[in-house]
Structure formats: structure tokens, C-alpha cells
Amino acid sequence: MNFPEQHELHKRRFGRNLGVALALAAFVVLLLGLTVVKVTRGDFEPASVQQGATNG
């Protein structure tokens, strides 16, 4: 099966598409980082568990 030749439009919009792709990838990395930080700090633990940790 032959793929059709790439349209001139796709070449012209490569920079824009790449920018959007990088922005979305950065957003995913950001979400991952936030999740790791929040989980590590125990932000998602129930309030009773957090209270216990504070009181030692």
C-alpha cells in the first residue's frame, strides 16, 4: 500500500504542529510531576491520617 505524497500544507504547518505537540507533552510531564509531589507529600491521604502524621 502506498501512502499519498505529503501535502504542501503539512510541510508548512510542521512548525505549528510541533509547537502544539511539545506544549501538550510538557503539560503531561507537569501533571506527572504534580502527582508525584502530591502523593509523596501525602496530600491525598484522608484527613485523619494526615492529622496522625502531624501529631507524630
Binding site: 500544507l9 504547518r13 505549528r16 510541533l18 509547537g19 502544539v20
Partner: peptide
């Protein structure tokens, strides 16, 4: 493809324009 092409504005926006 031809109809897509005809809708493309003359000064097409780059990522920087957005």
C-alpha cells in the same frame, strides 16, 4: 486537498503568532 488548500489564509499563523 484542493478545498483545504483554498481555505488557507495568505499569512498563515505560526506557533509564535498563537
Amino acid at each position: 486537498d484542493a478545498s483545504i488548500h483554498s481555505q488557507v489564509p495568505e499569512n498563515e499563523a505560526s506557533f509564535g503568532d498563537y
